[in-house]
Design a protein around this nucleic acid. Structure first.
Lengths: 137, 137
DNA sequence: TTTACAAATCGTAATGATTACGATAATATT
DNA sequence: AATATTATCGTAATCATTACGATTTGTAAA
């Protein structure tokens, strides 16, 4: 998702487009991968020293609620990334740099067939490892 | 995995087979699904009142380390279940009761083909929903 | 079956991520 | 510019998990 698209969406939904919110979204737009709340705080700290946990977490949840974010949990910490495309897909996630690569493979058709009487609500398919760039280093 | 098998493995690896450890493994063997540390503590409390967090968490990690447990993270909490069969598989997890059903579907062959230069180390494929039993209730 | 020692457990405090809150500041609309 | 609403601050509370010194207990050898 484009940074400008995300900022417009905030406004469109009646929320205020503050400098901090724009800076947060810019961080994720440039990261192009999963980042933690702490990563975000560290990034914002120089420009907005003393930024409150409340601000950071409240906005992360806001972004998530209005569909600007994808989230996952790695090692007991929530990770966030800006929503990418709108079609269904999954991710390879690099354990070193957190960057992601879209995977088109999704076996849910097959799973639905295998789970006849089960009410399937959601699923998670993630691949972890080291991306080509990090393998170099 | 059978309860007795798990207990034997503890002894085989040189760890002591205490009453608490057996009770813990029995809890998971009977649960046949994912449970939290808190679930375990609540279950043990009547018989072993005042049981220490240290004991619970240390043993959960021990069980995990020697391959008696499978773990996953749901809603920010670690969940544990006794290892089931030895062949590769994934799980449907019921959001109500935590019980699991094995899924034989695994699309990793296809993924390997799609991620040529990526060093794949691990993957997670989980399906969430409501099991047939919980749909009744 | 006692002894001895390593391992396990207890009771509790510390940690780390996240959530919550009353007071203050900033944004958008009129 | 005034006003009402929303956002942010500073900080405390919460929740799961980890850690630690003191004590107890299983195990295997005497």
């Amino acid at each position: 998702m484009e940074l400008n698209e995300a900022i417009k969406e905030i406004k469109r939904q009646g929320y205020k487009t503050t400098a901090k919110r724009k800076a947060m979204l810019r961080f994720f737009a440039e990261a192009d991968g999963y980042r933690t709340a702490k990563d975000l705080i560290n990034h914002l700290e120089p420009a907005y020293k003393g930024i409150s946990f409340d601000t950071v977490y409240r906005n992360l949840h806001l972004f998530d609620n209005i569909g600007l974010m994808e989230t996952t949990e790695l090692n007991g910490e929530k990770h966030f990334r800006i929503s990418c495309s709108h079609h269904h897909h999954h991710h390879f996630i690099c354990k070193d740099c957190g960057k992601t690569k879209e995977i088109e493979v999704c076996p849910m058709d097959e799973v639905h067939r295998a789970l006849d009487n089960y009410a399937i609500e959601d699923h998670k398919f993630e691949i972890y490892g080291i991306c080509p760039v990090c393998q170099e280093a």
